[in-house]
Design a protein around this nucleic acid. Structure first.
Lengths: 336, 336
DNA sequence: TTCCCCCGTCGAAGCGCTTCGACGTCACCC
DNA sequence: GGGTGACGTCGAAGCGCTTCGACGGGGGAA
């Protein structure tokens, strides 16, 4: 293994000079820097991560806790993860993968052993048991999602309440008076997963405000249930003309089911969704949707951490405003 | 931060004794061990990961490279990842997440900086550019998947060729004479992704051997294309009665499409698949399938690495034999 | 010209842990 | 009863890096 002293000798400088040339923490003459860089290249030097972490008390590793629970749409989780990893790399950090299963003990372990410098937590519940721990930890953290009480914590997410409202308001503007929310699986609400709850809030508030008749239906995320869901909706609300879907796997099958029941989309029924743009655009009838900006959320989560690690201030709450994209699935309501 | 010297003082022993009590590398008296453990508990001691890595030249971290490319079914990737993380934790290791995008440089970086002790690589191509690198690295690695030439490397995967064969043979045994393979997306084959290729090999070989008429159809993994795929299959092979699906997202929509075209499953058409058991069992008509044993593969990949890290021998090639489970989607062929 | 300060570099002191060799004690065997 | 190990513990020497204080030399200000 080639170490910093080898580089130093080869470049005719002291080890500390090599270190400063690498970190830029002290000025180094152009000439010296060049010689050091040449030596590094010729010897194929790579600083030892452990030694660096020990001496600098920075591991340059971030922990990412991913949810594994049922009802969570896996591809979306992966999009967050990829965005986090990619952004972390841009900031010269790596990402350690923790599963929800490891729980609080896992968080405490990687933080207390100084394995990681900071943490990102996903799948936040309204009353998340990890909150006290995150507050107590001596390392910065960011939550993707908003718990009920988040003072002293840094959170970022799409403004799901506003997203729910945006969908209803879009439908209301088109003249729809009876709307339904096809939500996430029941267990997601039982766990009080923050984002799902907030969609319901926004949906209901906007419908009430606009005087629309509305109903909320938690639904399994299995495509096979789409037909049954569609039938139930129409049975319970025969005048239904607007649907908001917050359930990725069900989106396409649900549209199919409605059409098989004789309702054209958007002719007889307008459909909007809250999901990644790619998902919405890929459906046979491209769906008007509020984008789930996974890439942006992941990126900004990392950037918030970087600010905190640099000792700079970071906003506690970042709510990304919903952005609705009109596609082919919504249209003005038929004259009755 | 509480360190090993604090624990030592509190327990009335030397730091090295604490270390040995922790690692078990030298015998420690019952009495001393108890005192050390008590001190650790009382002080809330956690060994510093960096210091440990530096002194022992072991980071207790594994790198996992996950594929991000199109055509790869994300939930399956996640299942591998979860299994790897869980198993790694059982062996007191953590997992660093690398994206395919980081490429060879990423592998070299984490290995050369001693950030990780060993590597797991997924989404192996037949002629994977990373092979020379993995051979040259001074750290052990395991590939999930089999490249064309894998001497000197450790690989593990389901025996996809045998899986393809098993599906055809199952259909042949039921009397089917005309079969089709609904494969992964075209780009997967273009990249020569190892497992997809091998399924085709096995499928074709078994069909030829049994004298069955067969055809292979790479297919996009978008549910919306199911109807078109079904129509094409029936147009090209009107006598078709057996289908093998190696394309998770298309499985359920395809079954629906066939039924909409007037073919009952399994009455008129028998369907088998290669996919995780949960996926096969969740379809409306539960699908006879060869299981994709993601949990087992991930677990064994980690265990192979552990053996290698312990200096023990590990088999170079581990091919898991296919296990077919009969469900409701296959039946003897109708008398013509 | 003198003083001061900044630039660029060096040496040395750790960071917190593991590990090696050494040493005293005790039991056991011939 | 002395030799021989095994056991249990200690002290010290690093692991490879960062960082702090120091210092010589040169330029600008007075």
């Amino acid at each position: 293994m080639v170490k910093i002293t080898d580089v130093a000798r080869h470049a005719g400088v002291s080890p500390s000079t090599v270190s400063y040339a690498l970190s830029g923490k002290r000025p180094i003459s152009e000439e010296t820097r060049r010689r050091v860089e040449a030596a590094i290249r010729e010897l194929g030097y790579r600083p030892h991560a452990g030694a660096r972490a020990l001496a600098s008390s920075r591991s340059n590793v971030l922990a990412l806790v991913v949810p594994l629970r049922t009802g969570i749409h896996v591809p979306v989780v992966m999009q967050f993860a990829v965005s986090v990893v990619t952004t972390a790399r841009r900031h010269d950090h790596d990402v350690l993968l923790l599963t929800q299963e490891e729980g609080e003990e896992g968080l405490r372990r990687v933080a207390d052993t100084a394995l990681v410098d900071a943490l990102i937590v996903m799948d936040v519940q309204l009353h998340d048991p990890r909150l006290p721990l995150l507050r107590a930890l001596d390392r910065p953290s960011v939550m993707i999602g908003f718990p009920a009480a988040h003072e002293g914590l840094t959170c970022i997410d799409l403004d799901f309440k506003a997203a729910g409202e945006a969908c209803v308001e879009h439908l209301a503007r088109l003249g729809h008076r009876v709307v339904a929310l096809v939500g996430s699986p029941p267990e997601v609400y039982v766990r009080q997963t923050a984002f799902a709850q907030r969609v319901v809030e926004g949906f209901t508030a906007a419908a009430d405000r606009g005087g629309l008749a509305s109903s909320v239906h938690p639904c399994e995320a299995t495509p096979g249930t789409a037909r049954a869901v569609a039938e139930r909706l129409l049975r319970e609300q025969p005048a239904l003309t607007g649907v908001v879907v917050h359930n990725e796997p069900l989106l396409e099958p649900l549209v199919d089911a409605f059409e098989q029941l004789g309702l054209r989309v958007p002719g007889d029924l307008s459909v909007t969704a809250i999901c990644p743009d790619e998902t919405a655009a890929a459906v046979r009838v491209p769906i008007t949707s509020v984008a789930l900006p996974t890439a942006e959320v992941g990126e900004r989560a990392v950037e918030l951490l970087m600010r905190k690690l640099d000792g700079k201030s970071a906003p506690e709450a970042t709510l990304l405003p919903p952005r609705i994209t009109e596609r082919a699935s919504t249209a003005p309501r038929h004259a009755p």
